[in-house]
Design a protein around this nucleic acid. Sequence first.
DNA 1: AATTAAATTTAGACAAATCTAAAAATAGAT
DNA 2: ATCTATTTTTAGATTTGTCTAAATTTAATT
Lengths: 231, 231
Amino acid sequence: MSNKNVFLKKYFLMTRSEENYLKTIFHLGGGDSKSITTNAIAEQMETKPSSVTDMAKKLSEKGLVDYVRYQGVSLTAVGVKTALSIIRKHRLWEVFLVKKLDFTWDEVHEVAEQLEHIKSEKLVDKIDELLDFPKYDPHGDPIPTKDGKFQERDEKLLSEMPINSQGVCVGVKDSSVPFLKFLDKNRIALGNTIKVLDKEDFDNSLRIQMDGKEMRISHQIAANLYVKKND
Amino acid sequence: MSNKNVFLKKYFLMTRSEENYLKTIFHLGGGDSKSITTNAIAEQMETKPSSVTDMAKKLSEKGLVDYVRYQGVSLTAVGVKTALSIIRKHRLWEVFLVKKLDFTWDEVHEVAEQLEHIKSEKLVDKIDELLDFPKYDPHGDPIPTKDGKFQERDEKLLSEMPINSQGVCVGVKDSSVPFLKFLDKNRIALGNTIKVLDKEDFDNSLRIQMDGKEMRISHQIAANLYVKKND
DNA sequence: AATTAAATTTAGACAAATCTAAAAATAGAT
DNA sequence: ATCTATTTTTAGATTTGTCTAAATTTAATT
Ligand SMILES: [Mn+2]
Ligand SMILES: [Mn+2]
Ligand SMILES: [Mn+2]
Ligand SMILES: [Mn+2]
């Protein structure tokens, strides 16, 4: 390989593994100059702390993270930007799979984990355009704009809503396949209007009214559903 | 990694590199139990013969190629099937990029080289459906069906057409970016009707009529355009 | 302040995919 | 049949990303 290409490789081209580390660090809060520990990253990525240390050095070398031995890593400005561009791709692909190819919301994550690493700026932008610039992914997570800005939304967990308040279900905190399938089975979907009728002190379960129908849901469910409060 | 996963990895999961080797061997004719030489593969893939030897052993171990030392490799039945599934994905993605995202035919190959390695049977099938089961890619290359069958087409090179015969331009033999851009510049596109008016003995150039307009093209151009003869 | 437990890093190993240089086999030409 | 040029393989090294086991640092507890 030529000298120029070695330079390009070292400073611009991201490997899939590097991209996954950046994404994980961001999701753990490392975008706000908060230090994320080696163990936390290892656990999240189902890898070993020693592997994380190796990668921390490499990403630090590339100027993508700040790394202090024994103290953990946080993302630099460039690191944040890079992480956001991967998250943007991931979420846009998820929307594409649901809206254009009839995937269900519990099927998209695994495929998006692969598609997010495709390198083509034009491709992402065109997918964005094809989808009419969506602001949220199928799980209600915000899609960063091209210049890395997030859509903020005034939302709270259903479990924290007061009795008699109501709102629209806009997202899930847990987006694991079992939880999403559970929601499908119980006809709980994003966009549904939910009113809190009553709370049970004993087990923190909720009695709710959803699109006319009444039902009881456990605290664990309510603590994983985001609701946008009606004005 | 568990024992079962090691087994799965060894016998079912293909790496990107393995997939690229299979594809190349197929394109060099290794699908018809013809032996492809180490050097030919190395040249095509811009790698070194020693690397090809290593991979030949690995693919042989996995039952995807027949490999005889010093004699080259050919694809097994499983190898052909695997190669075709990758080629199918590549060409379907190329169609998708052109038809749905307004990519030009000289832009799609590079991105398809990445997309062809995405692992999701449902994704390919749904893309196929979205495109209404196309039979040819943007360069006129046939798209293998799900069960690995090719659409044959009665086509010949424009350079081999007799004087006064005519047909429809259906494909390119050379699909390099410069050639495709040259065709665009000269308004030569798939679907155009071409009639051979005259051939020049001196340089083998052709005088043709294309959609009404007359023009002269060199032998090199004519030898890289596929034409479907009118009945 | 010293001890101990937990987190983190280092050292050394390994698999995948590649390379260079040297050795071996094949094929072509006398 | 022998020589020779070419092709192909082997041997050994390198890079990336991972692991285990041992050493080190930090944090918590007495
Ligand atoms: Mn996801
Ligand atoms: Mn999502
Ligand atoms: Mn192509
Ligand atoms: Mn093509």
